[in-house]
Simulated scan of single mutants.
Amino acid sequence: MRELQGMLGVSRSVLSSLVAAGFVTPARGPRNAYRFTFQDAVLLRTALQLRVARIPPRKIIAALSRLREALPDELPLSGIRVSAVGNDVAVRTGPSQWDAVTGQLLLDFEVADIKGDVVFLATEPASRNGERQVEEWYDLGEQLRVSDANGAEQAYRKAIEFSPRPYYAAYVDLGVLLCELEVRCNDALDVFDEALVHFPDDAVLHFNRAIALEELGRIEDAIRGYQRCLQLEPTYADAHHNLAILLEKRGDPHGLLRHLNAYRRLTT
């Protein structure tokens, strides 16, 4: 329950009310604690968005129940969108749009103003194929990173956890996401340090780690980070730019000019 609260950004009482209303039927674990599947998380997020759009709870339950039964298992994660249209729930798959409760096709001129939408991700908790499950979590992180930072973080961490080998893109995107939150730069640093164990000679990781160090006020460590990035990739323009600024703050005019000139050469 606690993990799902963080993913969806809602209180425990809201989640409990959604469970009590029958939107999902989670399993029970040790000490009778709720155990939610990936599908439960998706259904609850969809239900929350439809409730915000003022769709009646009875209609939400009917719509999500029909979707759960009707959609094919092989449907790609980004292949369907659930929207509140007037007082109804509409589903779009490719060019087609249909009523989620009745199954009736809707023509574009019949559709009222959309009051909100949410991507419905899957009809099963995740693919039984491990590689596809990892990609599903990563794709979910990409979809949520603008609208739901907590949910995106959880999704990226799941992609890293379930991946049979180090997941480079998830490490990078998770670290950048946390650093953008400013107060999470220490957490971002931990992510980049873990990633560098697997990818020690990656310039992008060293660059992003240096940004996190700079945000934390660890200027000398940040300088060394940018220098390491440039050792690996001398044409990394942004590393020259950031290093020039830090060297100026440190009182190194020669270093400032050297890296500023390199930045200008690379960007003009």
Rank of each mutant, 00 (worst) to 15 (best):
L174P: 09
D201G: 00
V19C: 07
F199K: 01
G94H: 02
D202C: 01
R12F: 11
R258F: 11
A262G: 08
F23L: 10
C185R: 15
L75F: 10
L64F: 03
N186I: 08
A222D: 03
G217T: 07
R184A: 12
Q39R: 13
R35Q: 15
I223F: 00
S17Q: 14
W137H: 01
Y263F: 15
A188V: 06
L257E: 12
A239G: 04
V85D: 05
G175P: 09
R128M: 14
A62R: 03
A53T: 06
H198Q: 06
P164L: 06
Q227I: 00
D99N: 09
V101C: 05
A203K: 01
Q143C: 10
L18G: 06
S78Y: 09
Q39W: 10
A112Y: 08
R12S: 13
L177K: 06
A155T: 01
E248K: 14
L260N: 12
H198S: 11
E233C: 10
V85L: 12
N129R: 15
R92P: 05
A222F: 04
L43I: 15
E248G: 11
H206L: 00
A33C: 11
L50Q: 04
A210F: 04
N186P: 12
R51I: 02
E110Q: 14
E131I: 07
Y236P: 05
V176D: 07
Y263A: 10
E136W: 03
G103D: 00
E124L: 15
G141M: 00
E153H: 01
A212D: 09
L121R: 14
Y138S: 01
I211M: 13
P26K: 10
D108M: 04
D187S: 13
D173K: 14
L174S: 02
R184G: 07
F36P: 09
A244M: 00
V197N: 00
V176L: 11
V204F: 06
R218E: 09
G151I: 05
L75D: 11
P56H: 07
E180R: 13
R265T: 10
N87M: 08
A21P: 02
L181C: 10
D173M: 10
T102M: 03
N87C: 08
V101N: 00
L260R: 12
V82E: 07
T235N: 13
E135F: 03
L174M: 02
L121K: 12
Y167T: 06
I60Q: 00
I223S: 05
Y34H: 10
T268H: 15
D238H: 12
L18R: 06
S163I: 01
A112N: 11
W137Y: 06
R28K: 14
R228L: 05
L140S: 08
A239Y: 04
Y34I: 08
D139G: 13
